[in-house]
């Protein structure tokens, strides 16, 4: 390995020039996709989880299979697939966000199902003994408890989703890593671009992990 000096490897000037652009893409795209994607994943995931639990087998079984296929195949390929399916006028940023959200909704659904199953049978029985209607039992008793049990997993999936946003590269959405790569292409300073992108990811991941832990503590009964 030929030794290179730090100056050869790292130019503060190049880094300073790149930072606003990369950081801008982080806030404008990466963060946005993560937040909206999480909202989609949580709501669709909860819907799927409840559906697989209450729908008759003839609906629930195929549904679970479709969820398995989505969960077990590459997000990148799904993004490309969706980008060719939609009309060309559609903004691929939102198409990509929806695909990421739906992809992760299958993971969240699995976690929700585990959370629903972890709710003590006695809770269902008490709700029935009080004659609470099914809908109210789900909404007021089972789902709040399931959600609590699921929260750490949801946090992890969100972090995971966040780190998957560079897959949007595949459909040419200008998220942070794509911007870094393009900046690298034009300046031939890939190292600063990718290092900055990596550090932003690292900082945001650590921050989210910390926030999730705080949230968990705040939700203890």
């Amino acid at each position: 390995m030929p030794a290179i000096t730090f100056e050869e490897f790292w130019s503060w000037e190049a880094a300073a020039n790149l930072l606003p652009e990369v950081l801008g893409a982080f806030f404008k795209v990466t963060l946005l996709v993560t937040v909206v994607g999480t909202l989609i994943a949580v709501s669709v995931g909860m819907l799927l989880a409840v559906l697989t639990q209450v729908a008759p087998g003839i609906i629930a079984r195929p549904l679970r299979w479709v969820m398995d296929v989505i969960r077990m195949t590459p997000l990148i390929v799904q993004l490309m697939f969706a980008s060719f399916l939609v009309p060309v006028t559609w903004d691929l940023l939102w198409v990509g966000t929806a695909v990421i959200g739906v992809h992760y909704s299958t993971y969240m659904a699995e976690s929700f199902i585990a959370g629903i199953r972890s709710v003590d049978r006695g809770q269902w029985e008490a709700a029935r003994a009080l004659s609470l209607p099914q809908g109210r039992t789900w909404r007021a008793i089972v789902l709040p408890q399931a959600l609590r049990a699921t929260l750490p997993a949801l946090g992890n999936w969100t972090i995971s989703m966040f780190k998957d946003t560079p897959y949007l590269f595949a459909i040419s959405v200008l998220e942070m890593v794509t911007v870094a790569q393009q900046a690298g292409n034009s300046t031939f300073r890939y190292n600063e671009a990718f290092t900055i992108a990596g550090l932003i990811f690292l900082a945001a991941s650590l921050f989210t992990a910390f926030a999730v832990r705080r949230l968990e503590k705040a939700l203890v009964y």
Binding site: Y167, V177, A180, F194, S205, L206
Partner: peptide
Amino acid sequence: GTSLVVQLFWLYYVMPL
């Protein structure tokens, strides 16, 4: 904490340095 894609690009574009 750093994304797979970033690591991949780092290995691919930066390691040759």
